[in-house]
Amino acid sequence: MDTLTTPQVINSEYLLKHWQGHRNLTRKVIDAFPENHFFEFTIGGMRTAAQLTAEILAMGAPALKSIVDRSEEPFSENRFNLETKAEYLTKWDESTAAINANWEELSAQDFHETFNLFGLYNFPVIQNIQYFIDNEIHHRGQMFVYLRALGITPPFFWER
Rank of each mutant, 00 (worst) to 15 (best):
Q130F: 14
K65Y: 04
K28M: 09
E94P: 00
F38K: 00
E73A: 15
F132Q: 03
A58F: 07
T6H: 06
F39N: 00
R47W: 08
A101G: 05
A149W: 00
S107V: 13
V29A: 08
F115D: 06
F156Q: 06
V145M: 10
S66P: 02
L57E: 03
A108W: 02
Q127A: 10
L106H: 10
E113M: 08
H37Y: 11
E77V: 10
N11Y: 12
F132S: 01
A63E: 02
L147K: 09
Q109F: 11
W158M: 07
A98N: 05
T153N: 13
G119V: 05
H37F: 08
M59N: 12
E113Y: 04
R160V: 02
A50H: 07
E55V: 01
R79A: 05
E77T: 04
S76H: 11
N81K: 15
D93F: 04
I30N: 05
F115Q: 07
I56Q: 05
S12K: 15
I129W: 12
T53C: 12
T42G: 00
N36Q: 12
P155H: 09
L117G: 02
H18V: 14
F111H: 08
A58V: 03
M143A: 08
S95N: 13
N78T: 14
R148W: 04
F38V: 01
I133P: 00
N128K: 06
S12G: 15
Y88Q: 04
W158V: 02
H139Q: 07
Y121F: 14
D31M: 08
N81S: 15
A63H: 01
N102L: 04
N24W: 14
V29S: 06
M143E: 09
N36S: 10
T114F: 01
R140F: 01
F80V: 03
V125P: 03
T53R: 02
S12Q: 15
P155Y: 08
F41E: 12
R79S: 07
W92M: 07
L4D: 09
N116S: 08
F41C: 13
V68W: 06
W19V: 15
Q127G: 01
W92K: 01
P155T: 13
W19H: 15
D2T: 09
Q127N: 12
E83N: 15
W158S: 12
Y131S: 06
N100G: 02
S95Y: 00
P62E: 06
T42S: 11
E159P: 00
Y146E: 12
